[in-house]
Structure formats: structure tokens, C-alpha cells
């Protein structure tokens, strides 16, 4: 769906990536790492200095008009709607421009406007909306076109928790229907909820691309398991466990996924004592990414 071959542009250097159909890919990186440049290359707003960009099998710069019926883009900070026109009028113009059937379009519009909660100001001019309201409307305008490929650059900026959750729900629905989605965000919580794959860019270089699970295993395989037991305290001296702490009938183990799995730990303990409760804490994706990128403070600054 999106194919970059040794692409260099501005800070981006030698990026090669292939995003297959139906995936929701989260593109993350510190401020100024090249996330927005990546999106602009993918949507044909920029031409690479080196390498080749192919989207839906074509060079997006050369096939802009045909290509954009199948691709929908939202870039934070870019006004993709006419600010002097009302929200509903803007959507009507989109409908005509994309040649979408009226009843089908307004069915989608009613659903999205209710979910993202902007029906109350649909007759307001875009210019009179607050930043958060405008974000909802602009993101909705990208979603409503139901493209094959959806490119979202920082779509959750300025959205409240409720709107973020609704957006997550909508994106998951769209992905289950086969839409391919590339989303950049500094909001790790949203990204980890939505995406099936992650791409991490650091100073213009792609340092990781793959599933969230692989990322966990590869970079921070430390898990924490708390077991409430009944009876004798289990002996786990022979297990490759980093450390453990005891609090009455509770024992907490920290162990490495690469050396021992959760089920193996449980099996050994079950042989020795009765287990009343088990709680496993996986390492936070956010802390993994921050550890990889190494710039915790910068990471929270939007590009």
C-alpha cells in the first residue's frame, strides 16, 4: 500500500518501509524526527531527494488527482476545509467533489458527527470554531471519504479523552473493513490502542518497524508477575528470574520474556503450592519507545 525505497528528504535518510493493506501503522518519533515529512511524501506533497515513493503502486506526485480519490489525508496545522464556509457546507462540497451518493454520504456524516460530537456546531463557519472543535471536524472530513488509505498526522492533538476514544473506535472499525491507516502521534496511549504495527523514527532514521509485541520482546522484555499463594512459599531459585519481593502471601517476580515465559513461571510455582490469584504486568509501550528514542522530554513536543 505504501512503499518507500531508500527515501531521503530533509531530515529523513535512507528510509525503506513497506506498509501492507489493512494495517494500522503508528509512526512515532521525537519532535523534528521527520514524521510529518514522511506523511507529506506519502501523500504527494513532497518529492523525495533520493529514493522512490510508491503509494497504491504509483508515484503520488504524478498521480495526484486520480490518486486522491483513494487516499485521504489529515495533517495537523493544515486547513483542509474552507474556513469561511460552514461545517456542513464544507462536507457537502467534499461530497460533490468525491462524487459520493447523497444518502450514503449523509448516513456516514450522521454517524461520524455524532461519534465525534460536532453536530451541535455543524452550521458554524470553520473559522469560528475552537481548535479542538476544528480538529474533530477536519479529522471527520478525512474519515468520511472512506478511502483505501488514510493518512493521519497528529489527529488527536487538542481532542479530549472522549473524542480520542471515539476516534480510536472509528479507526478500528475502518481497519476491520480493510482500510489501511498510517497515523502519527505524540500521544503514545492513542497509538498503542489503535495500531497493529509501529514504525519508530529517530533523527530521520527508521530504527524499528514491526508489531507491538515484537517491540516489547526485542527492546524491553521485562515483565512483572504478582502471585497470591496459599500454603508454602514456592522455591524459585533455579529459575532465570531477575528479582522477586515477598509481601505476606504475595510474591512479585520480575523476569525476562526472552529467557522464561509467564506460563513456565506459573507451572513451576503450581508444582509447589496453590495459587489464588495471578496478575501479570507487561512493560508499557510508551516507556519502551522513550527508552529507544532516548529523548523523553522532547518526545512529548508535537512536531
Amino acid at each position: 500500500m505504501i512503499n518507500f525505497e531508500k527515501v531521503s528528504k530533509f531530515i529523513l535518510s535512507d528510509i525503506s518501509i513497506n506498509i501492507p493493506k489493512g494495517e494500522i501503522v503508528g509512526l512515532i518519533g521525537a519532535s523534528g524526527s521527520g514524521k510529518t515529512t514522511f506523511v507529506r511524501l506519502a501523500c504527494g506533497l513532497l518529492t523525495p531527494d533520493l529514493g522512490r515513493v510508491r503509494v497504491l503502486g504509483k508515484n503520488p506526485v504524478n498521480y495526484r488527482q486520480k490518486y486522491f480519490s483513494d487516499v485521504s489525508t489529515f495533517i495537523v496545522g493544515k486547513n483542509l476545509l474552507d474556513k469561511e464556509t460552514s461545517v456542513i457546507q464544507n462536507f457537502e462540497m467534499l461530497r460533490i467533489m468525491y462524487g459520493i451518493n447523497k444518502s450514503e454520504f449523509y448516513k456516514r456524516y450522521n454517524e461520524i458527527s455524532e461519534m465525534l460530537d460536532f453536530k451541535g456546531y455543524e452550521y458554524e463557519k470553520v473559522i469560528s470554531l475552537s481548535f479542538g472543535q476544528k480538529m474533530r471536524v477536519e479529522v471527520a472530513a478525512a474519515l468520511i471519504l472512506e478511502p483505501m488509505l488514510l493518512l493521519l498526522d497528529e489527529p488527536t492533538v487538542g481532542m479530549d479523552q472522549n473524542a480520542k476514544e471515539c476516534l480510536t473506535k472509528i479507526l478500528k472499525e475502518k481497519a476491520s473493513e480493510g482500510m489501511t491507516i498510517l497515523i502519527t502521534s505524540h500521544d503514545m496511549q492513542s497509538i498503542s490502542n489503535i495500531c497493529t504495527r509501529l514504525a519508530i523514527i529517530d533523527k530521520g532514521t527508521l530504527i524499528y518497524y514491526g508489531s507491538k509485541e515484537r517491540l516489547r520482546r526485542k527492546y524491553l522484555p521485562k515483565n512483572k508477575m504478582t502471585i497470591t499463594f496459599e500454603g508454602e512459599m514456592p522455591n524459585i531459585d533455579d529459575l532465570p528470574i531477575n528479582r522477586y519481593t515477598i509481601d505476606n502471601d504475595k510474591i512479585t517476580y520480575e523476569y525476562n520474556d526472552n529467557y522464561i515465559s509467564s506460563s513456565e513461571v506459573v507451572e513451576v510455582i503450581l508444582d509447589q503450592t496453590e495459587i489464588r490469584d495471578i496478575n501479570i504486568e507487561k512493560s508499557e509501550l510508551e516507556s519502551i519507545v522513550m527508552q529507544i528514542i532516548g529523548g523523553q522530554n522532547e518526545f512529548y513536543r508535537s512536531e
Partner: peptide, 21 residues
């Protein structure tokens, strides 16, 4: 200002949009 991107990202002739918008 970058608002030209809006026309580039739509599936209609760019000049057509600029003329009528």
C-alpha cells in the same frame, strides 16, 4: 501559509479549485 496543500490533496483539477473557490 501552506493552504495550497488543501487543493493539491483533492481529486479535482487544482486550477479549477483555485478559480472557483
Amino acid at each position: 501559509e501552506g493552504s495550497f496543500d488543501r487543493f493539491v490533496l483533492r481529486p479535482r483539477g487544482i486550477l479549477f479549485q483555485i478559480i472557483f473557490v
